[in-house]
Design a protein around this nucleic acid. Structure first.
Lengths: 359, 359
DNA sequence: TCGCTTGACTTGAACGTTCAAACAGCGTAC
DNA sequence: GTACGCTGTTTGAACGTTCAAGTCAAGCGA
C-alpha cells in the first residue's frame, strides 16, 4: 500500500479577520491544528490525539510518521480545545491583594513558589483582584461559573471567614494557605504553626538569659496573629515568665512608638518577639532612639523573614515560613480536589528561626 | 399564543465523571448553558447570545423574557466557549520573577495594578515562571501557541533583549514595562524616565547646598540602571559638579560597604543618589557606622519608593514610579495590539521624588 | 468455514460559544 | 399583485479537542 493520503475533505478557507481575532498574526499562516497534522500524516484526528495522549495505542510506525508531522508543523494542542472538552482549564485563581500590610511582604515570594509548583503540574495561576470582601466572593463565583479556572487558592484565612463557607457551600474546589479556623478538621488547608515558631523564639531568649520577654504586634483577634500571640503567652507562662503583650498598629511607625513607650518604664523588656517583620523593624528603630544596642542589650526576633529584616543594623533574626513547601502542598491538594473530589488532609508546617545579629 | 415551551429535545444524561471533570460539582446540577436558557425562554441560542452581546437587536419583550431565564438559571456565558470561537482568551501573561533583586521590590505593587487595570477591561493576568532566559522564550512561544493567552507583558527590558526580538519576529502581541532599548521608535512600551528622576534628586541636593553628590548603584551597563546613572552624570556635570560614581553589588551589605569606603576618604560625599532603595538602605547603614546624621549631615535619596525606604531612621526619600499609570497604559496598549494590530506609541513617564527625612 | 477476539485506526458526537446566512412576517412602493 | 426592504428570529457551521462507538482486517480455535 502506497502512502495513503486522504484528500482534504474541506479547505478551511482562511476566515476573514473576524471580531476580536488575532489580526496581527492572521495572514493565512493559520496555526496548525490536530486536523492539519492528521492530514499531513495521512491519519485521522483521533490517531494524532492518541500519539500525544496515549502513544501505546498507536503502532510505532504510524506514531513516528505522526510525530514527524507534528514536528514539521510545530503543532501544539490548543489548551482551549481540550479545556472545552475536558471541562478543565488547568488553571487556578489566586487573589493578588496588597492592602493588608502583613501578608504582602510575602506575596511575591509565595506567588513565585505557587507559580513554579503549578507549572510542574502543567497548571497556571490566574490572578484576581477584587476590591473588597463581598466583591471577592462574587468574583470567585463568576470566575468559576464562567469556566475560567478549576479552583481557588486562598490565603490569610481567619475565624468566620465567609469565603470558606461560600466555597464549601457551592462545592467549588479550593485550598487555603491558612487553616479553616472554625472547622480545621475539614482539611483542605496548609498552614504554618505560628505558635510553634514563636515558642522557638521565646525559648531561645529564655535560654540566653532574657527574663523580660515582650510580645509586640497588632490587636487582631483572629487568625494567624492570634495564633502567634497565643504561642507567646503559652510558652512564656510555661517557662515561668510573666507575659507582656504590647499592642501596636501594623506600621513601622506604630510599632516604634509602642516599643519606645515600653522601653521607657522601670524594668523594661530586654527582648521583643514580634508578630511581623514590620513590628521588628519598629523595635529596631525604637532601640536606636532609646540608645539600646540591638543584640547584646536588646533582643529582637521578627516574623516572616522578609527583606525588611535585612534593612536594620544589625540585621534582624526572623521566623521563616517554608513557602515553597506550602505552595507545593497546596497545588497538589487542589489538583486532587479538582480531579477526584478528595479534600486534602490538613498540614501544619513548622517555621524556622533564622538567627541574625538581633538574637 | 400561549407560553411556548419547547420540549427538551435531548436530555443531557449527566455524563459519568469522565477524565478530569469536576467531580465535586458534578451531581446532576450541570451548570446552565446558553442552550438551557434558550429552551427555558422559548427562543434559540442565538437570540440569547444577542440579548447578551447586542441587546438592541432583540425585541424588548423577548429580551425581558430571556433575561428572566438568565437570572433564573444563574446563567453565565462560558469563557471557554467564546474564547474558542473568538480566538481570544482575554488574558495576558506576565512573568513572575523574583531573582533579580532590583525589580522584585516593585513586583507585588506592579502586579496588583496590572491586575486591576486588566480587570477593568475584562481581562485576566496569567503568571508564568520560566527558570531561565531561553526557557522564557520557549515558555512564551508555548503559551501563545497553545492558545493560553492573547499576549505578553514584559518588564525589565535591556539592550539586546532577545525576548523582544523573538516576540516581534513571531508577530506575537506584547507590550513592555521598560523601553525597547535598541529600537525605542518601534513603540509598544511604557517606561519611567529614570534619568529625569535622578536629575530631580541631584538638583534638589545641589539646590540645598550639597557640592559632593555621589552616585551609588550596580555596575550593570544596560537598561534602567544605565539610564539612571547617565541622568546623574549629565545633570551633575551641567550644574558644574564633579561626578563620583560608586559601584556596588545589589545588596544592602554591598552598598553599605561601598558607602563606608566612600565616606572614609578626604572630602567625602555629602549626599548619595542611589540606584535603588536597597542601595539607599545600605547608605543609611553606612551613615550610622560612620557616625553621620542622615538628613542634616548626609543626604540620601533612593529609587522605587519601596517599603524598604521606610525601614531606616529617618525614613529615606525615594523616587517613586507611577506604577498604576504604567499598568493602565500597558493593558490598553496590549488590548489594542491584540484587537487591531496597532503598536502603542512609546510612553516615557516621569517619576516623582518623595521627600522624607533623608533629603 | 464460521464465529470470536484483538489490534489499529476512523467516524460521530459533544463541549459552549458566535458569525454568517437563511427565513418568516409585515409594510410600502410600483 | 408582485417586488423589495426591514426587523426579529432561527439554523448551519465552525472554533479544536477527546470520548465513545464504529469499522475493518488479521489471527485463531473449533
Amino acid at each position: 500500500m502506497s502512502t495513503p493520503i486522504t484528500p482534504p475533505s474541506r479547505i478551511p478557507a482562511a476566515r476573514p479577520p473576524a471580531g476580536g481575532a488575532r489580526v496581527a498574526n492572521q495572514q493565512l499562516e493559520r496555526v496548525a491544528t490536530i486536523e492539519t497534522v492528521a492530514e499531513r500524516a495521512g491519519v485521522s484526528r483521533q490517531t494524532v490525539s492518541n500519539v500525544i495522549n496515549s502513544p501505546d495505542r498507536v503502532r510505532p510506525e504510524t506514531r513516528e510518521r505522526v510525530q514527524a508531522a507534528i514536528d514539521e508543523l510545530r503543532y501544539r494542542p490548543s489548551r482551549l480545545g481540550s479545556a472545552l472538552q475536558s471541562r478543565s482549564t488547568r488553571s487556578f485563581a489566586y487573589r493578588c491583594h496588597i492592602d493588608e500590610a502583613e501578608e504582602n511582604l510575602l506575596l511575591d515570594r509565595f506567588l513565585h513558589e505557587l507559580c513554579r509548583a503549578a507549572a510542574l503540574r502543567q497548571h497556571h495561576i490566574v490572578l484576581v483582584s477584587p476590591a473588597n470582601e463581598t466583591d471577592e466572593i462574587v468574583t470567585y463565583d463568576d470566575m468559576y461559573r464562567t469556566g475560567g479556572v478549576d479552583g481557588f487558592i486562598l490565603s490569610g484565612t481567619y475565624p468566620g471567614d465567609p469565603r470558606l463557607d461560600f466555597l464549601i457551600a457551592e462545592r467549588i474546589p479550593f485550598v487555603s494557605f491558612g487553616r479553616n479556623w472554625d472547622h480545621p478538621e475539614l482539611g483542605g488547608w496548609v498552614d504554618i504553626d505560628g505558635a510553634a515558631g514563636v515558642a522557638d523564639a521565646v525559648q531561645h531568649f529564655w535560654a540566653t538569659g532574657h527574663r523580660r520577654i515582650a510580645w509586640i504586634g497588632g490587636s487582631s483577634t483572629g487568625g494567624a496573629d492570634n495564633d502567634r500571640r497565643n504561642g507567646y503567652h503559652r510558652t512564656l507562662t510555661e517557662l515561668g515568665g510573666e507575659p507582656l503583650a504590647i499592642e501596636c498598629s501594623e506600621t513601622i511607625e506604630g510599632a516604634a512608638e509602642a516599643a519606645v513607650a515600653a522601653l521607657g518604664v522601670a524594668h523594661p523588656p530586654t527582648a521583643f518577639v514580634c508578630a511581623t517583620d514590620i513590628a521588628a523593624v519598629g523595635c529596631s528603630r525604637a532601640a536606636a532612639e532609646m540608645h539600646r544596642t540591638v543584640g547584646a542589650e536588646l533582643g529582637i526576633i521578627g516574623f516572616d523573614d522578609t527583606r525588611l529584616a535585612l534593612a536594620p543594623t544589625p540585621q534582624l533574626s526572623s521566623i521563616r515560613q517554608p513557602t515553597a513547601m506550602v505552595a507545593q502542598l497546596l497545588i497538589d491538594g487542589l489538583i486532587a480536589a479538582v480531579t477526584s473530589g478528595a479534600i486534602m488532609a490538613p498540614h501544619l508546617l513548622n517555621p524556622t528561626l533564622i538567627h541574625r545579629g538581633s538574637s
